[in-house]
Design a protein around this nucleic acid. Structure first.
Lengths: 189, 189
DNA sequence: ATATTTAACTAACACTTGTTAGTCTGTTCA
DNA sequence: TGAACAGACTAACAAGTGTTAGTTAAATAT
């Protein structure tokens, strides 16, 4: 056998291409030629292009859900929980630089799994919001609009996948603590 | 004449569809039928699908460049400049909810204009970074990693287009000042 | 050594893509 | 009124799309 490719290889390469051009702009022939094989050969390992998107997005989304569940069940205070959420995002983003692009930009092309994905995302945001609102109640977090706080932190965390690869020198523990400090304490002196 | 469509109509509808599904997933037939016309009729007004993307992205990118130039030329202190940048983003995002999606997610499908776009973006980020570094030097901004500060603020501002439409109740002046406060002073009490 | 399985290949499919050519009808202006 | 034009239409194109069928050869199991 000239070559032996695995489903994992295909998914990884797909994620890389999906990040560069988006799901819709990547053809099965693009993907195959990047791997060094003909498009039809891919179908010995996967069932459809859709399946690739599903595998990429849902596995990451579930990792976020699991991480959030652990944080919600911990009895830390609100600021500690936020710190743990930052860690969670830094860790998942670092290990899924390519996949995060699909999660953020191509989720709308999920078909059967779209509703499931949207539920995971909504639940995640609801938990996040609850942590913030509790923090305000407990006087740990300043009395600002919780939606603006949620939006501001979550936007930053969701964009990590774009920045981590550009700053290879910054190690993840350092990034995580710098980020936590800036998000929580702000930047003013 | 049964109908009279303008290039502006086409661009607006295109931006809306590009936000929903991404540039590559929107066909000229999709676009035409949303407008209530046949695909070939679009070509009486525009020269190509590419042109639509260019018009949408470049016009917004240039508005950011102009806004940044005004801020750089003002002799405000660093914190004031950051406040003005927040306003700039809130204003442009509010007025270009759909187009901002293309700017953020479909810029890689620009062809002849790709280099130009990338130059505008890099210059913008360089100016932003300079403001932050000057702020640190002048003791207005805390001595943290300027790349992390830049990334954190800019990610939030670049995601505004996703949040503004979900929070119609929050008016833009209020949003702008809440956001400035959170980005600069943080969220801790 | 032989039989079975794995996974590549070529060829083709039905359909969709952006775009062009040519036509026809309603509007504008002399 | 009639000529010129604008802008819609139908029809078609060449190229590209995801995917399937059938074939072949290498790897593995008996």
């Amino acid at each position: 056998m000239k070559q032996k490719i695995s489903k994992e290889d295909i998914i990884k390469t797909a994620a890389k291409l999906f990040k560069e051009k988006g799901f819709s702009a990547v053809t099965m022939r693009d993907l195959a030629s990047k791997i060094g094989v003909k498009a039809s050969s891919l179908y010995n390992h996967i069932s459809s292009k859709q399946e690739l998107l599903k595998e990429i997005i849902i596995s990451i989304a579930e990792r976020f859900t699991e991480g959030m569940a652990v944080i919600m069940n911990s009895n830390s205070n609100s600021i500690d929980k936020l710190t743990k959420i930052v860690d969670l995002h830094v860790n998942i983003a670092s290990n899924n630089i390519y996949g995060m692009a699909s999660l953020n930009n191509d989720w709308m092309h999920l078909e059967e799994q779209l509703d499931y994905y949207l539920k995971l995302r909504t639940d995640y945001e609801d938990n996040f919001r609850e942590i913030i609102i509790n923090g305000i109640k407990n006087n740990e977090i300043k009395h600002a609009n919780p939606e603006v706080i949620l939006f501001s932190i979550l936007s930053t965390l969701r964009s990590l996948y774009l920045w981590i690869p550009k700053k290879e020198d910054l190690n993840h523990i350092e990034l995580s603590s710098n980020l936590t400090s800036i998000l929580i304490e702000g930047i003013n002196k």
